[in-house]
Amino acid sequence: TTIHVGDLTLKYDNPKKAYEIAKKLAKKYNLTVTIKNGKITVT
């Protein structure tokens, strides 16, 4: 599972963990989490 945050690309083997991290990042920086085709993007 890949999380895209701006220019950063973070890879995680565990999709659930990746989603949790994405949610935390989104909350911290007041951003939105988008999931599309298995890719998690924080914008």
Rank of each mutant, 00 (worst) to 15 (best):
residue 1 T to S: 10
residue 2 T to E: 11
residue 2 T to G: 05
residue 3 I to S: 03
residue 3 I to Y: 01
residue 3 I to M: 05
residue 3 I to G: 02
residue 3 I to R: 00
residue 3 I to A: 03
residue 5 V to Y: 11
residue 5 V to M: 13
residue 5 V to A: 04
residue 6 G to L: 12
residue 6 G to T: 06
residue 6 G to H: 09
residue 7 D to K: 15
residue 8 L to E: 03
residue 8 L to H: 08
residue 8 L to T: 05
residue 8 L to Q: 06
residue 9 T to E: 12
residue 9 T to C: 11
residue 9 T to S: 08
residue 9 T to F: 10
residue 9 T to W: 09
residue 9 T to Q: 12
residue 10 L to I: 12
residue 10 L to K: 02
residue 10 L to P: 02
residue 10 L to A: 03
residue 10 L to D: 03
residue 10 L to R: 01
residue 10 L to W: 06
residue 11 K to C: 08
residue 11 K to R: 13
residue 11 K to F: 15
residue 11 K to V: 15
residue 11 K to P: 05
residue 12 Y to W: 05
residue 13 D to T: 08
residue 13 D to H: 06
residue 13 D to G: 07
residue 13 D to F: 08
residue 14 N to H: 06
residue 14 N to D: 14
residue 14 N to F: 05
residue 14 N to G: 04
residue 15 P to K: 07
residue 15 P to W: 15
residue 18 A to G: 02
residue 18 A to R: 01
residue 18 A to P: 01
residue 19 Y to K: 07
residue 19 Y to D: 02
residue 19 Y to L: 15
residue 20 E to F: 11
residue 20 E to N: 07
residue 20 E to M: 12
residue 21 I to P: 00
residue 22 A to R: 00
residue 22 A to I: 10
residue 23 K to F: 13
residue 23 K to C: 10
residue 23 K to S: 08
residue 25 L to A: 01
residue 26 A to F: 05
residue 27 K to D: 12
residue 27 K to M: 10
residue 27 K to Q: 12
residue 28 K to D: 05
residue 29 Y to F: 11
residue 29 Y to N: 02
residue 29 Y to D: 01
residue 30 N to D: 08
residue 30 N to W: 05
residue 31 L to A: 08
residue 32 T to F: 07
residue 32 T to R: 08
residue 32 T to E: 07
residue 33 V to S: 00
residue 33 V to P: 00
residue 34 T to A: 09
residue 35 I to F: 06
residue 35 I to Q: 03
residue 36 K to E: 15
residue 37 N to P: 11
residue 37 N to R: 04
residue 38 G to Q: 04
residue 39 K to W: 13
residue 39 K to H: 15
residue 39 K to N: 13
residue 39 K to R: 11
residue 40 I to H: 02
residue 40 I to V: 05
residue 40 I to T: 02
residue 40 I to Q: 02
residue 41 T to S: 09
residue 41 T to K: 05
residue 42 V to A: 03
residue 42 V to R: 00
residue 43 T to F: 10
